[in-house]
Design a protein around this nucleic acid. Sequence first.
DNA 1: GGTAGAATACCTACTGGACGGTATGCGGCC
DNA 2: GGCCGCATACCGTCCAGTAGGTATTCTACC
Lengths: 205, 205
Amino acid sequence: MARQARALATRQAVLLAAAEVFDERGYAAATMSEILDRAGVTKGALYFHFRSKEELALAVIEGQGAWLATWQPSSDSPVQTLIDLGYAFAHALQDDPLVRGSIRLTIEHGSFTQPQIAAYQGWSDVARGLLERARDAGDLHPGVDLAAAAGVITGAVTGIQLSSQVLTDRRDLIQRMADLWTLVLPGLVQPHALARLSVAERVPS
Amino acid sequence: MARQARALATRQAVLLAAAEVFDERGYAAATMSEILDRAGVTKGALYFHFRSKEELALAVIEGQGAWLATWQPSSDSPVQTLIDLGYAFAHALQDDPLVRGSIRLTIEHGSFTQPQIAAYQGWSDVARGLLERARDAGDLHPGVDLAAAAGVITGAVTGIQLSSQVLTDRRDLIQRMADLWTLVLPGLVQPHALARLSVAERVPS
DNA sequence: GGTAGAATACCTACTGGACGGTATGCGGCC
DNA sequence: GGCCGCATACCGTCCAGTAGGTATTCTACC
């Protein structure tokens, strides 16, 4: 077990370094050498754990699903949960290198096509599920197309995150999320439900 | 003039081929050889017109500003103009290789940082200007933060376009734009103005 | 209106370097 | 002493960019 622990540590170091470099440079511009340097690992070690650059990238992308899997709904109303999820994700984007790298690789379509689709679908499905629960609770406007709304919200979060990254290195991401909800919620939820929601971030005390 | 005509033709051929390759592969993964092949031009010709790969990419990015510059407002209400602009842009993304390549390079931050910021700002400014006119016309809800709304709309369009590209190669982009406006407009414009807007695409007869 | 010569526009062949990936060797824990 | 986990050295490929020559077209003068 002890020697497996060492192996796991280097594997994690490689994964973290790869996520950072992929986040900063993108897949094609990222070089194995830089990943090696940053991980403090040699080529042999890396290629022992990952058979190719692409396999390494896929492992980084996995980090996104892992984050979403560990996320716990905030037990409130479904719409509030969706809002909170957005903020939690925003903070992960600001702080968690693995999530950052994963998102950049997801957004950068090209070399590998399948996992990106899965990632987008994953987010859209989560949003859709929450919206369904909200509709069943009578919180939404009657005519709302759930699939369409889920798609728009997923896409909008993607784009807002991107523009925030380009313009302010994600410093104003939280504010932009609040702006999004302010603009979108009136078209989604009924006034009585809107009154119970907190659009701004609810900091866990 | 005649010599300029020939030169201009090869320059355009290079620009078009570059936009296509950048669109398909991204900046780093795009190779000059592929651009040369597709343009049917030799290296010497290309490097006569563009001094480096980066300069070529910048020229492609310019295409976006050029498109926006040639665009003519549809003389309606400001909000309707904004909606129409979205659809016009969507069609350009589906059909115009230069716009496609330009957008991909804009979204792909990294190597060159300045022009992307300018591009985002350009779109945001246009949206902001139209929203200001809409507010002055009394179409918007009183408390709307114009800058925030413009930023959200710009970002949302960016993201929707991206997810549509990844999921369906932009085939459902028009539909997603309609979904966006359906969701966003109620939080933006007052009911009396909303009634006069056509959210779905207005095909010019 | 024909021609010299000067730009302009383009072509071919090449280079140095970096990149992803591999072959092989070796130390240390079981 | 065997195998897991890594280290080192190396390889073939490909890439952006350049050097230097050649063709094409414009300008100017007769």
